[in-house]
Design a protein around this nucleic acid. Structure first.
Ligand SMILES: NC(=O)c1ccc[n+]([C@@H]2O[C@H](COP(=O)([O-])OP(=O)(O)OC[C@H]3O[C@@H](n4cnc5c(N)ncnc54)[C@H](O)[C@@H]3O)[C@@H](O)[C@H]2O)c1
Ligand SMILES: NC(=O)c1ccc[n+]([C@@H]2O[C@H](COP(=O)([O-])OP(=O)(O)OC[C@H]3O[C@@H](n4cnc5c(N)ncnc54)[C@H](O)[C@@H]3O)[C@@H](O)[C@H]2O)c1
Lengths: 206, 206
DNA sequence: TTGGACTTGTGAATTTCTTCACAAGTTATC
DNA sequence: GATAACTTGTGAAGAAATTCACAAGTCCAA
């Protein structure tokens, strides 16, 4: 399959969110124009994005909301449940563990790890915090799909190395630290400081 | 000035992070090649990014770490302090309010707002939670530069409207909701669900 | 002062992403 | 069944971002 751009995948996510909203409101069909208006893009972009994966619409009519959202879920790999572990049970890690929005979308948080002995054994949202040392062993028995890194920047690379060694192939990194991983491992970063700096730039040069 | 791409600004942020690291370690100069290696890009990209703003390097030598980081801070608008308000004192809002990494980079959290009467009056990290109703009035006296939205998705648009009416011209949005704002207002979104979906896509089609 | 080893800055080439524009298909109405 | 009003899917055009490639500048050692 032709390589799909990151920007395309992000937009698919956005489209899916609207489609689910429409689904709830009982709307049966939607045009690329309507989808574009809400997603801040153009109808041509919507159609092009979808065209990479097939043709799902009806000319003259638009797209069936139910069908298109099912196809998008399929494309994005959201038909299955993903096993997620959170590493670092600090402020942000705990907030993530308590957030139920992820489970709703099929990302099930199965474990929380920390290296601090004072935290190990305590619970967050019904999950007992485990020692990070036990990750490699536990990952053998129940391989997680995604690791969320919520540790200090200074520890992020070594934790990432351990995660990779444990066989996990996707990382969501909250630490403001560029990670070096084999290219078989997918990494996404959530870098709030960088976003704020983007706003600072916009305010300064706007 | 020629319009600068978002992707360029993001990379400048990344470069700055490395430069500060080098500065701490007492390294005086750095080449575009070294900067690129750590940022996961190419030396040509680094030089092109910088060339939009001037020429800061010395041929044969590289860049002065101190000088380049000062220039980047200037370009990104990080020489001044930005006044930030957090709206929504829930799990994520509280984690952000307690995070001191932002202040270090010049983003000072000056107030936390919430609409829940049960939360108003309580404190997070030394800041008293205020009623959102008081925002427009208080913004008149001490205009904040940036509003961080950490409210439920259903409330995000109306809160954004209020923020815009209060004269705030930059928003960092944590709610999984596309915001409609005038184009004079800069918006960045931190959408963790979308990042997870990106990983799901990568794992499925990788 | 010459030569060799580096490194920047930048037009030009290339690649990637977005927008245009229109043939082709659908539905509704008379 | 003819016509009008829509809307998709997609090559082709256009715009934007990235990479190439090299002249020009710097440093150092002999
Ligand atoms: N809190 C925020 O709002 C926020 C915002 C932006 C970025 N971040 C980033 O997220 C990360 C976590 O931030 P936080 O505020 O939650 O910090 P925190 O100090 O509250 O939590 C960090 C946790 O990681 C654990 N830890 C440390 N080293 C570890 C290791 N080697 N292995 C496993 N666990 C380890 C600590 O015991 C602690 O529980 C940091 O990199 C921070 O820069 C946080
Ligand atoms: N917690 C997470 O890890 C996480 C992760 C991803 C996204 N998010 C998003 O961040 C947002 C906040 O999540 P949370 O987990 O902190 O939720 P939360 O329920 O813990 O907090 C939401 C807060 O917003 C306040 N609020 C509600 N309506 C308001 C309004 N109109 N004006 C002002 N304040 C209002 C509530 O009183 C509450 O204090 C949500 O949109 C959520 O989807 C959270």
């Amino acid at each position: 399959m032709k390589r799909i751009a990151d920007s395309t995948v992000r937009r698919l996510s956005i489209y899916l969110r609207f489609l689910e909203d429409f689904e709830k409101r009982g709307i049966a069909t939607i045009s690329s124009d309507e989808l574009a208006a809400r997603g801040g893009t153009t109808s041509a972009q919507v159609r092009k994005d979808l065209s990479f994966f097939g043709s799902f619409g009806k000319r003259g009519l638009g797209y069936s909301v139910a069908e298109l959202s099912a196809r998008l879920r399929q494309i994005l790999g959201l038909e299955r449940e993903w096993q997620v572990v959170i590493i670092g049970a600090g402020k942000i890690g705990a907030a993530l563990a308590q957030y139920h929005g992820f489970a709703q979308r099929g990302f099930r948080i199965v474990a929380v790890y920390d290296s601090d002995p004072a935290k190990v054994g305590r619970s967050v949202d019904g999950l007992v915090i485990r020692s990070l040392d036990s990750l490699p062993e536990e990952a053998k028995r129940h391989p997680p799909d995604i690791a969320v890194l919520a540790v200090p920047a200074t520890a992020a690379q070594e934790v990432a190395d351990m995660v990779v060694k444990s066989g996990i192939r996707a990382i969501l990194n909250f630490a403001p630290q560029q990670l070096q991983v084999p290219e078989t491992v997918a990494v996404k970063a959530v870098n709030m400081a960088m976003e704020l700096e983007g706003l600072s730039f916009a305010l300064t040069n706007g």
